Amino acid sequence: MSPAPSSKIVAELKKRAQKLGFVQFGIASAKVPADWQTNLQNAIAKNWHGDMDWMAETFERRVSPNALWPEAKSAIVLAYNYTPDTNPMDMLGETDKGIISVYARNRDYHDIIKGKLKELAGMLSRQAACNVKVFVDTAPLMEKPLAQQAGIGWQGKHTVLVSKQEGCWLFLGTILTDAELSIDEVETDHCGSCTRCLDICPTNAFPEPYKLDARKCIAYLTNEFRGVIPVEFRKPIGNRIYGCDDCLAVCPWNKFAKTTADIKLQMREDLRAPDLVDLAKFDDVAFRTHFAGSPVKRLGRDAFLRNVLIALGNAKGHDVVGDIKAHLNEDNPIVRGAAVWALSQHVTSNEFVSCAQSAKKTETDETVMAEWQGDVK
């Protein structure tokens, strides 16, 4: 174990973190409460993680920082503000426009934060002669509970971290070290009787407060999931084409949040209210070019187009039938199936049957045939 750094070194580290743009800084022990394992185990047993198999596969390492790095003694947790300049829910009525989650409207936050964390970790390592490791949402580390242990905020009823000073719009980064640091006081829960985040969920993804069934969550369905989105969630998705921020946006603690000062996280104008019909025209090259540097790029063109087509199906009152029909013969059956469903939301039964008869690639495709045979809404 490395010697304990002086309080002066920690104070200098905190001051540097502030200059780098971090709005919260806290320290927790790498030894965490036993109930972390129980909570995660219960969620996985109920399959609330959906297709995110990596959560189960990395369970043993995920339940504790010491399981990930046995020599770790302390965890420095930092929060970075990405508060938007407008409420993302204001666009829900603009059904011909696509809504992209606030965190993905510009540069990938991993690229922005990791470099800053490395600078801080290097500073600590040099001054305290200790070993360090940095993490930004890419390793099996339970960052939100760890942030609560570090006094940064608490995990709200929507399972997202909430800060009394900064609200919900926070990215988290962690520095593990084998130095034993003086830990901060654990933050307590300040949700009270409020249930706004639970009540606003379009798909009832919260089986109970503080519990999330990802299989029903629009953020999971449009960001992580690559398969056929279940029919019962397609209308509730509305015009959300990448993620969902509703439960964050309604949190009353956001009254203390300030718009992010980092220009790399401020909304790109072309992603503020993109036209769905324009997005539907993207081939793979256009998709990758348009979303270069954005988290959206990781989704891939086909899954993104699936989302766009579902949103076009919900764009009632707009002339989008031709744009939907253009995708009835896509190579990917999941995309074709989404186009079939979207078409069914806009045309009469006779028109729908006529399109089915003229389509070229559906005869032996069970996925798409199931969509053709569904009820016309």
Score class of each variant (00 low, 15 high):
Cys355Asn: 14
Val285Asp: 11
Ala257Glu: 03
Arg272Trp: 06
Ala338Gln: 01
Gly317Leu: 07
His290Pro: 04
Pro333Met: 05
Asn307Pro: 02
Asn332Arg: 15
Asp278Glu: 11
Thr259Asn: 02
Arg306Gln: 02
Val277Met: 07
Phe291Pro: 05
Asn332His: 12
Leu309Lys: 01
Ala303Phe: 00
Asp323Asn: 14
Arg336Phe: 15
Ser358Glu: 15
Ser294Arg: 09
Leu276Ile: 03
Pro295Ser: 07
Ala338Cys: 03
Lys297Trp: 01
Thr289Glu: 10
Asp275Arg: 13
Lys258Phe: 08
Arg298Glu: 10
Phe304Asp: 09
Asp270Lys: 08
Asn350Thr: 14
Glu330Val: 08
Arg306Phe: 02
Ala280Tyr: 06
Asp278Leu: 11
Glu351Arg: 02
Lys258Gly: 03
Ala261Tyr: 01
Gly317Val: 12
Asp323Cys: 14
Ala303Met: 05
Gly300Ile: 04
Leu309His: 00
Asp283Cys: 09
Lys297Ser: 08
Gly322Val: 12
Lys297Cys: 06
Ala356Val: 11
Ala273Asp: 11
Lys316Ser: 13
Ile334Ala: 06
Ser294Thr: 09
Lys258Glu: 13
Ser354Asp: 13
Gly322Leu: 14
Ala342His: 03
Gly322Ser: 13
Arg288Lys: 10
Arg298Met: 00
Gln357Val: 14
Arg288Trp: 03
Asn329Arg: 14
Arg336Trp: 15
Ser358Gln: 15
Ala286Arg: 09
Arg288His: 08
Pro295Thr: 10
Arg301Lys: 15
Val347Lys: 13
Leu276Val: 03
Glu269Thr: 15
Asp302Lys: 08
Val335Leu: 08
Phe291Thr: 05
Ala339Gln: 01
Gly300Met: 04
Val353Arg: 15
Asp278Ser: 10
Val340Gln: 05
Thr289Ile: 05
Gly300His: 00
Ala315Asn: 09
Arg272Cys: 06
Glu330Ile: 09
Ala292Gln: 10
Ile334Ser: 01
Ser294Leu: 07
Asn329Glu: 10
Lys316Asn: 12
Arg336Cys: 08
Ile334Val: 09
Cys355Val: 05
Ala342Pro: 06
Ala338Lys: 00
Gly322Ala: 13
Ala342Ile: 04
Glu330Asp: 09
Ala303Pro: 02
Lys325Ile: 12
Arg298Cys: 01
Ala338Trp: 04
Phe287Val: 11
Gly293Asp: 00
Ile310Tyr: 01
Asp262Ile: 09
Val308Gln: 01
Ala338Leu: 03
Ile263His: 04
Phe287Arg: 10
Leu343Ile: 13
Asn314Phe: 04
Phe304Arg: 11
Leu309Phe: 02
Asp319Leu: 12
Thr289Gln: 03
Ala292Phe: 09
Ala356His: 13
Phe304Asn: 07
Lys325Cys: 10
Glu351Trp: 02
Val308Gly: 01
Val320Cys: 12
Pro295Met: 11
Val277Glu: 00
Thr260Asp: 11
Asn314Arg: 13
Glu351Met: 07
Val320His: 08
Gly322Glu: 12
Asp270Asn: 07
